[in-house]
């Protein structure tokens, strides 16, 4: 056990210290083999019950948390809001309390509204892990991005990382900013001004709108998904123009640094944010990220479950 880990909840990376983040990444390293090999089950969470409380569509995050919990020996319940009492008018907090009464140890929650995991953590005795709250945070995605960078490039400290695309609506961007800065990386956020609010500079990041100008300084580019529904909201004129200005192409990549690492939290839109050549090229860690995510989520569940109130 790591003596320094005292948190029952993981609500966001903003709350964590550098040491706490490193503790999770180190623990994930230990679980990476288990993540790769389905036969190598562990028993750290045997007898524990974890519920996936997803109020917003998700496939990979929900599956990843479910697998992570099972690989550690826990029982997993999947709860989707559509078929529940929430659709009958029950309040979110009442629903969560009722589910907790089944004897739940941990709740993994995804919700479209920022702060909802925080609300739950105030009303439940169970531990709460944030699997994405609106545009606020997605801490395990941030952690797996850090883990992937550390694995590929050997360090995070001193690197320059570009977060590219729809920053305004991205919880992944915010968790990345907090995590990267705590581990000593420089962060550039880049995209059209409609998707990169100028006030984000107050978080200590460099704000850029010209990708070609900043690319030569970047060690890592994290390509965020463009949400098509945004196009109707006057955020950008067309997919074609977006791709022209911000799409990651081979030509663009060649003007960047040698060995620049490409990350994408997915799901990706080939031909919108990046070309297939880039997505599948040697600089891309997109598929690795999925396996790393499993290891990171095992680490988070293990650490948080080890803390009793």
């Amino acid at each position: 056990m790591v003596a320094s880990w005292t948190r029952k909840h993981l609500l966001g990376l903003e709350d964590l210290s550098r040491d706490e983040i490193t503790t999770i990444l180190d623990r994930a390293e230990e679980y990476l083999e288990t993540a790769r090999n389905p036969a190598a089950r562990k028993t750290a969470l045997a007898g524990r019950v974890i519920v996936n409380l997803f109020f917003e569509a998700s496939t990979r995050t929900r599956v990843s948390f479910g697998l992570a919990a099972r690989r550690l020996g826990a029982d997993v319940i999947d709860f989707a809001a559509g078929g529940s009492s929430v659709s009958k008018g029950e309040s979110f907090v009442d629903t969560a309390r009722n589910i907790e009464a089944f004897g739940i140890d941990m709740v993994v929650v995804r919700h479209a509204v920022p702060g909802t995991p925080h609300l739950l953590s105030q009303h439940l005795r169970a531990g709460v892990v944030n699997a994405g709250d609106g545009a606020h945070e997605h801490p395990t995605q941030g952690l797996l991005d850090l883990f992937t960078i550390r694995k590929r490039l050997g360090r995070v400290e001193g690197l320059t990382v570009c977060l590219l695309g729809d920053i305004a609506h991205s919880r992944v961007a915010r968790s990345n900013i907090h995590g990267l800065q705590k581990l000593g990386a420089r962060v550039i956020v880049c995209g059209p001004p409609t998707l990169v609010p100028s006030q984000i500079a107050a978080m200590g990041v460099e704000v850029a709108h010209d990708l070609d100008a900043v690319l030569p300084r970047c060690d890592v580019v994290n390509v965020l998904r463009i949400q098509f529904e945004r196009q109707r909201g006057a955020y950008f004129p067309s997919i074609r123009e977006y791709f022209h200005l911000y799409g990651m192409t081979r030509e663009r990549l060649e003007r960047g640094r040698e060995g620049v690492l490409i990350l994408a939290p997915g799901p990706i839109n080939r031909g919108v944010e990046l070309t297939p050549e880039v997505a599948d090229g040697p600089g891309s860690a997109i598929i690795e990220q999925v396996t790393n995510g499993l290891a990171v989520r095992m680490a988070v569940l293990d650490l948080c479950a080890g803390v009793r109130s």
Binding site: P114, G115, D133, A135, H136, H169, Q199, I200, A202, M203
Partner: peptide, 11 residues
């Protein structure tokens, strides 16, 4: 309010 805090919180 729209400002640095709303951007930070994603609200």
């Amino acid at each position: 309010h729209e400002g640095a805090v709303s951007v930070r919180l994603g609200l």
